[in-house]
């Protein structure tokens, strides 16, 4: 389970007021739940996910993975999360298998564990024909599959995925979304960002709508429809945006 309370992240800009990339973010992702982080480019999705992945610290606020606070033991936290950053590439001169072996060692897995886990993931993500090819020869979709295998190699409780389907063709996107459903079935807590409304609508148990660093609303699809009196996610977003702008003004 993942839980945050009042997370805030500011960036200092010399001579100007600090830029607030994430403000007062409070959310929970339960075991076996998929939370979609939906918002336009520059809304603060990546910053929020980076904080959850312990790559950058929050300026204030709290975050727990399971019952552990991220500030108390980042090393421990990192063993329990899998993070896929946006547009991640791979080490071109290594094969997929070598990439997995490398990351397995960084997660302190034994050689035997790495091998058996790689076999499982090759089957799961249908990578039999690409796993021993150098990554520089893989297509974007194939690269993303190896990346996903890397993220889930150490069987983390929480998956943090930053726009996992961005720039992918329909077929690969579908297999990635199937993979997310599979991970949900295995009890992983999943938070993933996207700016595709239909993707969020189809896959997520709950959706958090984020704009200008603030979570405007969070709830199930039905709850959001009721809240805004609309019947699709796009209208929900636009309606919330109007309210948000009115409040700010």
């Amino acid at each position: 389970m993942l839980r945050t309370e009042h997370l805030r992240r500011e960036y200092e800009i010399p001579g100007k007021a600090p830029l607030v990339a994430v403000r007062d973010a409070t959310l929970t992702v339960d075991d076996g739940e998929v939370l979609g982080l939906l918002g336009p480019n520059g809304a603060g999705k990546t910053t929020l996910l980076r904080i959850l992945a312990t790559i950058i610290p929050p300026t204030s606020g709290d975050c727990w993975i399971g019952d552990r606070h991220i500030k108390d033991n980042p090393d421990h936290i990192r063993r329990h999360i899998g993070f896929l950053s946006g547009n991640t590439k791979l080490y071109g001169r290594l094969t997929g298998a070598e990439v997995l072996r490398y990351f397995g060692r960084l997660y302190d897995l034994s050689t035997q564990q790495i091998e058996s886990r790689t076999e499982e993931l090759v089957d799961l993500l249908d990578m039999g024909d690409i796993i021993h090819r150098r990554c520089e020869t893989l297509s974007t979709g194939q690269t993303q599959k190896v990346n996903l295998a890397r993220v889930i190699l150490h069987d983390p409780e929480v998956l943090i995925l930053d726009e996992p389907t961005a720039g992918l063709d329909i077929m690969t996107s579908r297999s990635i979304l199937e993979f997310i459903q599979h991970a949900r079935g295995r009890g992983h807590s999943i938070i993933f960002s996207t700016h595709y409304m239909d993707e969020a609508e189809r896959l997520c148990d709950r959706i958090a709508l984020i704009y200008s660093g603030a979570i405007m609303a969070i709830g199930t699809k039905q709850e959001l429809f009721e809240l805004t009196g609309t019947d699709n996610v796009q209208d929900v977003f636009l309606s919330l945006l109007d309210t948000f702008k009115e409040n700010v003004a």
Partner: peptide, 14 residues
């Protein structure tokens, strides 16, 4: 350049 740093930083490696 490859954007692999974030993957590395999200592992327990200091």
């Amino acid at each position: 350049e490859r954007g692999t740093f974030e993957s590395l930083l999200s592992t327990p490696t200091s």
